[in-house]
Design a protein around this nucleic acid. Sequence first.
DNA 1: GGGGTGCTGTAAGCGTTCTGTCAGGTTGAA
DNA 2: TTCAACCTGACAGAACGCTTACAGCACCCC
Lengths: 220, 220
Amino acid sequence: MKVLVAEDDERIAEVLESALGRSGFEVHWEQDGESAWYRADTEEFDAIILDLGLPQMDGLTVLKRWRRGGLETPVLILTARGQWEERVEGIEAGADDYVVKPFHALEIVARMRALIRRSKGVATPRIPFGKYELDMRSMQVTEDGLPMDLTPQEFRLMAYLLHNRGRTVSQLEITEHIYRQDFERESNAVEVLVARLRKRLGHDVVKTRRGFGYTLGDGY
Amino acid sequence: MKVLVAEDDERIAEVLESALGRSGFEVHWEQDGESAWYRADTEEFDAIILDLGLPQMDGLTVLKRWRRGGLETPVLILTARGQWEERVEGIEAGADDYVVKPFHALEIVARMRALIRRSKGVATPRIPFGKYELDMRSMQVTEDGLPMDLTPQEFRLMAYLLHNRGRTVSQLEITEHIYRQDFERESNAVEVLVARLRKRLGHDVVKTRRGFGYTLGDGY
DNA sequence: GGGGTGCTGTAAGCGTTCTGTCAGGTTGAA
DNA sequence: TTCAACCTGACAGAACGCTTACAGCACCCC
């Protein structure tokens, strides 16, 4: 599940990214209204978390422009405590849910799940992949129906690759998605992690495209 | 299938009525606690949807009176977001399930079906689990039919795990469901509690998934 | 009201598992 | 052949969860 977080406060964004990331979401982050608008207008997300107080273009405007442009992605807005007119306006502008700051990260996760589930009908949070199946809800991967134990980091990598099946994702991209923001770029942690995942899934499941990145085998 | 909806908000009631009606349920609607209580006390329903914030007699009181009077109809409670104490209290008062507002009508339908199926299969809303059985009404767990003593907190944990059987629930999630809202996050209370529950049920009943959380064994 | 009893969160110490680092080997493209 | 990109196994620090002891608290019974 791919989520866009439009939030200028770095601290909040990090909290969200870590909580959502841990729960198997793939988080993309934009810091100002205009970038956020452009991003969701050109790329497909499963849900959007939108702070109303954004620089460049304020959240409400962004939301209205999205809706006017036909964007149907569910949007959860973040509002400051007490600003309830904002909430009303937000809902009227097309928000699907709102959460008041300060919030518990897990609440956001739960609401994201609910929003996405609702928007997809009763979509299964399971992604099949050959004899494997990745279940976001229980955070488990099964092989031929039997649960296999992946470590948290391995699970995140697999989830990310699976979400981008068929595409080649670069090491940098992986780093940005499953590691903390300040993570050392020169490290070979991703390579090691890939090796570990391969040890579990079989070597050929993850294909290396030298110089570009990795792809999840299409053999499935 | 005959369902009683106890809800004072007319808008919500209508949504429920239409969704349930379309799914083949027969919906009866009461707007205040006292009428709802009387109705279910004198008429037989297959399930009840109960809003906790009712005029005349508050939902929790209604529920407790029903249960004290021996009513065994499954009850799904509706609570406002964030009112998690309500949920805990509701479950303890004998609710079989709960849904947080705002909700998706179809979700209610699905849960109704599940509740009714469960209640017809097993006469009482007891959740069997291997040689154990958890009874929400009496707040008791039996082992091979013999009552075993769990402390309130242990019972809540077990109930929560059992409600989420097969899923891995994180420590954070557990914290949010069985502790006060302002509970210290850094504490290891959950770990200690799990250890205590294990001492009662046997060590392998609750499985640890390092980095993810806990799962109730599927071996049952 | 005083003492006992059981419940529950805190804290510290310990073992296990995870994961990034490093060094050295392998691969593949030019 | 050369070189960067990538792989691999060993290792050590960090993170995580378990256990135990303890103290505060509520409750109960005399």
